[in-house]
């Protein structure tokens, strides 16, 4: 089983990101389980969403405490929340940031990747300049760095699950796929 935790702020689409990725894995024959952190979060407040994938039916029905990978929609969460809590050693931390992965060297013992999903979203007219919707772009980057799920499945899932601007969302995901940069931080 692989467990993924999404960090974002209320309104950024962490829950939709988890659902779209779930559908992408589902199209590749996986069993999936996608859920938001069951809270009473408000717009702008730190939120989480979760995804389990497995080749077997998923019976486990509890929160994810020790994720394999993290997807971070908002870099301002680093330092603001206990981001790496429970994260397994050498797990991926995929961050939406214009900075290179080296800028996040402080997150020791994990693999870091960054993609400027905010600029990509703005270029494709997703959301507004002040509140860009980055959740589809970042999934393209996820496909590239982890190699766990194909870009075709991500594309299909976006077309099925995202209510509007389907072409723009797909293009944003493809662009993020090409632009993501990754660095392995082996030292702990």
């Amino acid at each position: 089983m692989i467990e993924i935790r999404f960090h974002g702020r209320g309104g950024q689409g962490a829950q939709v990101a988890s659902k779209v990725l779930a559908v992408a894995f589902f199209h590749e024959g996986y069993f999936v389980q996608s859920f938001p952190a069951f809270g009473v979060e408000r717009r702008g407040a730190p939120v989480m969403a979760f995804l389990r994938i497995d080749r077997e039916p998923i019976h486990l029905r509890v929160n994810i405490y020790e994720p394999d990978h993290l997807v971070v929609l908002d870099p301002t969460l680093i330092g603001a929340v206990d981001l790496t809590s429970g994260l397994k050693p050498n797990g991926w931390i995929l961050i939406n940031s214009y900075q290179p992965p080296e800028a996040f060297r402080g997150l020791k013992g994990f693999r870091i990747a960054t993609v400027d999903a905010t600029s990509i979203a703005i270029r494709h007219g997703l959301g507004s300049r002040t509140n860009p919707i980055v959740n589809t772009a970042i999934l393209g980057a996820f496909s590239k760095i982890t190699g766990l799920v194909g870009m075709d499945s991500i594309t299909l899932a976006i077309r099925e699950e995202v209510p509007g601007k389907k072409d723009e969302n797909v293009r944003a995901a493809r662009e993020a796929y090409n632009e993501v940069t990754a660095e392995f931080h082996s030292e702990r």
Partner: peptide, 11 residues
Amino acid sequence: DAFVLSHTSEP
């Protein structure tokens, strides 16, 4: 169950 089923997506 609240959330554990109501808001959880699965096939």
